[in-house]
Simulated assay, not measured.
Amino acid sequence: MGTRGRKLTDKNTSSKKGEKLVKADLKFKMAISITLDNNYCFKQMRKSGLQKLDQFIKETVGKHLTISKVDDLFLRTKGPVKSKETIEGISRDVVHYGKDRSPFRIHGFYNDDGYFVIYQIDTNHTKHKE
């Protein structure tokens, strides 16, 4: 599974294998295929953070939602929705997911296989308060 970032859009795009990728049709899948940011990883989490991560997984992957539906429900639209960050030497579009007014945020990017690669688990929304 590759970890290079690719921008998924609502329009059809061709992949290397000649497949058509439609964001509205792709199931939301998550992966940990790189090392998590040291300040936003499992060792920093408390039990409540693990429970919030578990709830996010249940409400997204567990319900077999599409990427478009996850974006509708969880994409943060106030403040930085996407940011450019250099991760493992590659500039990537980082997406921030969270729900309602909960401080829980999960940051990552989409790889070539359509997986949301988790980069940071921000259980108390501290990233943009630094």
Rank of each mutant, 00 (worst) to 15 (best):
R4K: 13
R4G: 03
R6T: 12
K7Y: 12
L8V: 05
T9H: 08
D10R: 14
D10I: 11
D10H: 12
D10N: 14
K11V: 04
K11Q: 14
N12P: 04
N12E: 06
T13F: 15
S14K: 14
S15D: 14
S15A: 12
K16T: 06
G18Y: 03
E19T: 13
L21F: 05
L21Q: 09
V22G: 00
V22E: 04
K23F: 04
A24H: 02
K27R: 13
F28T: 01
F28S: 03
F28K: 07
F28M: 01
F28P: 03
K29T: 07
K29D: 01
K29A: 01
A31S: 12
I32Q: 08
I32W: 00
S33K: 10
I34C: 00
L36D: 00
N38E: 12
N38D: 09
N39G: 07
N39Y: 14
C41E: 01
C41S: 12
F42S: 10
F42N: 10
F42W: 13
K43E: 10
K43L: 08
M45D: 04
M45Q: 06
K47M: 10
K47D: 09
S48H: 07
G49H: 05
L50G: 10
K52F: 03
K52Q: 13
L53C: 05
D54R: 08
D54P: 00
F56H: 03
F56D: 01
F56N: 01
K58T: 11
K58R: 11
E59A: 07
V61I: 13
V61E: 08
G62Q: 10
G62D: 11
K63R: 15
T66P: 10
T66S: 15
I67R: 10
I67P: 08
S68A: 15
S68L: 10
S68V: 06
S68Y: 05
S68D: 06
L73T: 07
L73I: 06
L73S: 07
L75W: 06
L75H: 12
R76H: 07
R76I: 13
R76N: 06
T77R: 15
V81E: 11
V81G: 13
K82A: 11
K82F: 15
S83Y: 10
K84R: 12
K84V: 14
E85R: 14
T86F: 10
I87W: 13
G89C: 06
G89E: 07
I90M: 15
S91W: 02
S91F: 02
S91L: 12
R92P: 05
K99P: 02
D100Y: 08
R101K: 15
S102D: 13
P103I: 01
R105H: 05
H107K: 01
H107S: 04
Y110H: 04
D112F: 00
D113E: 13
G114V: 11
Y115H: 15
Y115C: 09
F116I: 04
F116M: 07
V117K: 04
V117M: 08
I118S: 03
I118M: 07
Q120V: 09
I121W: 05
D122W: 00
T123W: 06
